[in-house]
Every structure is written in C-alpha cells, then in structure tokens.
Amino acid sequence: MIKGTVKIASEICKGCELCIVACPQDSLQLSREINLRGYRYAELKDDNCTGCINCALVCPDSAITVYRMPKKSK
C-alpha cells in the first residue's frame, strides 16, 4: 500500500468534518482538544493514510497539506 500522511493546520481548521467523511481510509477524526477559536479540529487517528489528497480537495479552509511516498523510479 502507498504510504502517505497529512499535516492539518489546527488553528485554521473549523472542524466541519468534510475531510473526515471524504477520507476513503477513515484515517481522520476530530480532536478532543479545541483550538483558539473554539473548534475541535481534524487530526490523523490511524497511520493508514495513502496520501490520496481527497481530504485536501474538499477542505474549504485549505488547512490540509498532504505527503506521499514517491513512486519508485525505474
């Protein structure tokens, strides 16, 4: 499986959960903590992210950066 991960800007996130329902791997969840504006924010819950960028595409606040293992060059 392709290995990826996400970095979520917790102070920008508004906890809308759109990334959580868009994730095919069910890798994301809302935090228990709240950020300065009072929102629970999205965070990785499992280490099974594939770096598919679906979450980043639907995030209205552009809070997500996605990383992925480079494809093997032949």
């Binding site: 290995k3 990826g4 991960t5 920008i12 508004k14 906890g15 809308c16 959960e17 759109l18 929102y39 770096g51 960028i53 980043a56 595409l57 639907v58 995030c59 209205p60 606040d61 552009s62 997500i64 950066t65 996605v66 990383y67 992925r68 293992m69 480079p70």
Partner: peptide, 27 residues
C-alpha cells in the same frame, strides 16, 4: 522520504477566512 503532493496555493492569501465551517465558498 515523503514528497508533498498537495499544499494550499500561494495565490490564496494566509488570511483566516470569515466563512462558516464547511461553506463551499472556500472550496
């Protein structure tokens, strides 16, 4: 060992957007 495959475009400012959570305008 990972490469960045998605990052917010530089053409979008860093200003915090006033839209409600989940609003399509941001997308």
């Amino acid at each position: 060992g990972l490469e960045c495959v998605y990052v917010k475009p530089d053409t979008l400012t860093d200003k915090y957007q006033h839209y409600c959570p989940g609003c399509g305008h941001g997308v």
